[in-house]
């Protein structure tokens, strides 16, 4: 009896601890917005993707480009300020036409491009560009990575075929944390 009571007490105290933790995390989500997280992810994707060798491109700064309406504002600039990637400076660029964005390494397609999405993707997929967006049906329409918002958390899904078509190699680490991976049965292999 005493033992059972002790166990119950322990469980209670752990529950209390979990509650506190949840509160803490809730507080953090309040201060960190979805855009903040997406901006961070955008930058972090670079570390799990391998671009084909391109001497000309490698002498240029590593470009993260926003196509269409800017949803991040200063956040992205703050995040990548003073950051380098494989010895390259990282810069954020904003474009309204897809033609200008073709030299970027990562292109985030904003909500405003909804109507031109197919055209944009068709243009970008012939280049070595990692396309990212939070537009619905982005993967089905040929995008590489789509942000999802699940359980109050930012997640992402991957279209491996689209990435491969762009000549990009995605790290299995990235695929591991993706909600799902399209264009392959790789996700099922990772347990």
């Amino acid at each position: 009896m005493v033992r059972a009571r002790t166990v119950a007490k322990q469980v209670l105290s752990h529950l209390a601890m979990v509650c506190v933790c949840l509160c803490c995390s809730a507080q953090t989500t309040v201060s960190v917005t979805r855009s903040d997280v997406e901006a961070a992810y955008l930058y972090n994707f670079a570390k799990f993707v391998q671009w084909p060798e391109d001497k000309a491109a490698e002498s240029q700064p590593f470009s993260i480009c926003l196509l269409g309406e800017d949803e991040f504002g200063r956040r992205l600039d703050d995040l990548i300020a003073n950051e380098t990637f494989q010895g390259r400076r990282i810069v954020a660029k904003r474009f309204s036409s897809v033609a200008a964005a073709e030299s970027c390494q990562i292109v985030f397609i904003g909500q405003s491009e909804e109507a031109r999405l197919s055209k944009d993707l068709a243009a970008l997929n012939t280049k070595h560009v990692l396309t990212v967006s939070d537009l619905p049906q982005f993967l089905e329409r040929g995008g590489a990575i789509q942000f999802l918002f699940q359980n109050n958390r930012v997640r992402f899904a991957v279209n491996l075929a689209a990435a491969q078509q762009a000549g990009l190699t995605l790290s299995s680490e990235l695929l591991k944390v993706a909600v799902f991976v399209e264009g392959t049965s790789a996700k099922e292999g990772v347990q």
């Binding site: 972090n44 930012v154 997640r155 790290s171 990235l174 944390v177 347990q191």
Partner: peptide, 17 residues
């Protein structure tokens, strides 16, 4: 090494796995 992406992309389930 295997939990790098889980940490970066805040995926606790993956890290616990």
């Amino acid at each position: 090494a295997n939990s790098v992406s889980a940490i970066v992309f805040d995926d606790k389930a993956s890290a616990e796995e």
